[in-house]
Deep mutational scan, measured.
Amino acid sequence: MSGIALSRLAQERKAWRKDHPFGFVAVPTKNPDGTMNLMNWECAIPGKKGTPWEGGLFKLRMLFKDDYPSSPPKCKFEPPLFHPNVYPSGTVCLSILEEDKDWRPAITIKQILLGIQELLNEPNIQDPAQAEAYTIYCQNRVEYEKRVRAQAKKFAPS
């Protein structure tokens, strides 16, 4: 494992614990031996107030490669969400998460999670990743928002 990646992720964890947006979660997972795995984080993004996503808490896994922060983490909703920019596998399609697009090593975990929260309610229809959600979003916004509200209710924190 890269010392650069681990040191950056340790800084990220410290900064997150000191200050993070209300309702968001970002925690490194534990290895079988109980030690912390900084390369694999369990996160959760709350649906934004005043949107059909409100009330939901959407679980996301963030996986970092050894060359982080040169390369972005892979962000994957578990379980996958109904959304035009979420692949059926759950992987998020967002330009700041793509090395050859808008990724920059200075982007923080907090910025990534806030960017994904923004994307939930403002899909990028130029870059669809899920045919069904994309089609319904474009053709029947009322039905799309109904499905999103049902999903938010399903993923409401207990």
Rank of each mutant, 00 (worst) to 15 (best):
P88R: 15
R61M: 10
D19M: 08
A44F: 02
M36F: 06
D19G: 10
E78A: 11
S70Q: 07
E118M: 10
A133L: 07
R13I: 03
N37V: 13
L38F: 10
L94F: 10
N37D: 13
C138T: 15
L119R: 05
P52G: 14
R147Q: 12
K76P: 04
V27R: 14
K146L: 14
T51C: 13
G56M: 07
Q11C: 14
R17A: 00
Y144M: 00
K146M: 14
I107G: 12
S70I: 14
F82K: 06
V148T: 04
A106G: 11
E145V: 13
S71H: 14
P72N: 13
I96V: 13
K153V: 03
D66I: 10
C93D: 07
K153E: 14
I4A: 12
W41K: 06
A156N: 04
K49M: 09
F24C: 08
K49G: 14
G55T: 05
K74N: 15
T51D: 02
K65Q: 13
D127N: 09
V86H: 09
L38N: 00
P80E: 11
S7K: 07
L9F: 00
P105Q: 03
D66C: 13
M39N: 11
R104A: 10
G50V: 08
K14R: 14
F82S: 02
R61Q: 11
D66S: 10
Y68L: 02
A106V: 11
W103Q: 00
S158C: 08
S71W: 14
P28F: 06
I109P: 04
R147I: 08
P28Q: 04
L57S: 11
E118S: 11
I96Y: 05
K65E: 15
T51P: 02
K30M: 09
E132Y: 07
N85Q: 01
T108Y: 15
A156M: 09
S158Y: 01
K59W: 15
D100A: 13
L94V: 15
L9P: 02
Q11D: 12
P105G: 10
G55K: 09
I112W: 03
L119P: 03
R149Y: 07
A131F: 03
A15E: 12
R17I: 01
M62E: 02
N31T: 08
R147A: 10
N85P: 02
S95I: 00
T108S: 14
S158I: 12
N140M: 05
T135H: 04
A10V: 09
N121R: 12
